[in-house]
Nucleic acid binder design. Sequence first.
DNA 1: CTGTTAGCGCCTTCAA
DNA 2: TTGAAGGCGCTAACAG
Lengths: 337, 337
Amino acid sequence: MATIKKVAELAGVSVGTVSNVITGGAMVSEPLRVKVAAAIRELNYHPNFVARNLKTQRTRTVGIIVPDMTIPFFPQVIAGAESVARKAGYFLMAVNSGDDGARQRELLSLLRAQRVEGILLVLAAAEPPSDQILRMIEAGVAVVCLDRVPDYLGVDSVCVQNAAATRMAIEHLIGNGYRRIAIATGPLALRNESERLTGYREALHNAGLTFEPSLVWEGNLRPDAVCEMCICRLTRCLGSPEAIFSTNGPTALGVLRALRRWSLRVPLDIGFATFDELTVDDLLEPSITTVAQPAFEIGSRGAELLLNRLRSKDDAPARTLAVEANLRIGESSRRRT
Amino acid sequence: MATIKKVAELAGVSVGTVSNVITGGAMVSEPLRVKVAAAIRELNYHPNFVARNLKTQRTRTVGIIVPDMTIPFFPQVIAGAESVARKAGYFLMAVNSGDDGARQRELLSLLRAQRVEGILLVLAAAEPPSDQILRMIEAGVAVVCLDRVPDYLGVDSVCVQNAAATRMAIEHLIGNGYRRIAIATGPLALRNESERLTGYREALHNAGLTFEPSLVWEGNLRPDAVCEMCICRLTRCLGSPEAIFSTNGPTALGVLRALRRWSLRVPLDIGFATFDELTVDDLLEPSITTVAQPAFEIGSRGAELLLNRLRSKDDAPARTLAVEANLRIGESSRRRT
DNA sequence: CTGTTAGCGCCTTCAA
DNA sequence: TTGAAGGCGCTAACAG
């Protein structure tokens, strides 16, 4: 592959001059600039960023690690991050951890070896690699956690206002006449899930309703497993709940499948609402009441935090940004008659 | 950040020795290996791949460019490619072109500058940058096109058997008693779309049905625009078609929305089937008959082609792999009574 | 303005 | 088995 040296030779100038026309740094006279441009085109020359990065000690690259890009939420986060990064002249590389702790460690290490300047991280559902993260920050690699915020770890984060948003949704259900409301959750070990459960309890409390532990259905993030779990619960439950709220998208799919198999009509027989959007939910019959997470914003705000750290090199204490979610009211939670 | 030199100093050995223990190349005696390992840990040393890549002239990295990761099809393609790349010791970086020709050029250039060894490319819906691609191949960067295969461009490709799969779906509709079948397509300038249209014509022909140009509804890939288009067509159409086949996912969403707004019940009033899966289609009422593309396989086979090129450095003529799609029969195409 | 040159951090001969 | 040294391609001083 052509090098800057070859270009210089062909153009009859020094490598310094070629470098100058490429980077647009120092001034180059018009005639030389033209000759260089011609040589570049003729040789089909493309600057070698590997060499440039080594020399400048900068890569202008940031990485983002997500558990699984095939979950619709994450590509939106990535898109948000990408748009901010790009405007700032940064390149964003996205990778999947497969929600696997070991792979996540590996990827962090790999990105660090690649000398990305910062990393946006949506933690896998495993013990967070706190030591690794702290040492990266120490070494000057900025890290911002998105969506899933680790406890006791001084790192910038962006998440949604879980409790507030859930409270809003549950209050909506209560306001529409539902009383016995079950909540189907993912693993409560995840902070997001437990915070949403907290919002649920707060809403019940505020409305003077009693919290029934038997209405907390803890599941996981695989729709089919959740479906089984719900069917099991519905069987055991003395009298179905009047409504179900699910705390995330995959869980919602499982719940809806279970209701369908159980021939429970929404909202005729049972009310329903969920955290997370369901992509094509405007096609679902009936339309679903949803707490819409601002996925794009989570990505973009995260990238902003990250770039700020990069620029200012400040050691300000870690910030956690909690963005608002919106309640989109559909037919699935229609007033109980 | 710690360098190999610092590690060598701390361990009291030469850089060469440190390098040897890291890469596992030459033999290193146990005592030295231990000392080096200790130094590495103490300094929190991470090898600098930028420098390594410059030296070795290899990056063990491949890129994949997709139009839009928020379309569910593409993350699956990426996942397929990633699994193959990873097994071969390659790192995959995924980026979005936003289906924009200029951005696509930019990204190709960027990836090349980063010295990726190969690129998996799902072309944007624009004039393919043939010159750029050919020059990259010439320069030794392998390129494999996925899903969208450019005409007249000698480049390895993986796509689905568009015509055959569509024929299968249309034959299924015909077999279930539908006669006047409309086809809603994306831009027919896209080869995938036109090939699917070809399959449609073939199926009609084989069944002895006449092809009616007025039943070809060409749209684009934005559901809302497609929805408008369909409503317009339904209004003008003398007598609704008995069924609609849509040639891709986004278009399908548009069609379904239009039918819903038009209060046409599927399959009671009109039959429906589509190319592409609709993520949550098992929740749709009724379930949708679908031509399922093997997205993961497209990615993995593409990566295999790419890695083969990298390994063998062969100049074999370009191969195009056409993978099979599967018809998943749902209620939306139920036998016409 | 333009040319020259010293490394960036690492791997890889080549000697010892 | 270990150490020393050259150079990958490029940028950024600095000297002319």
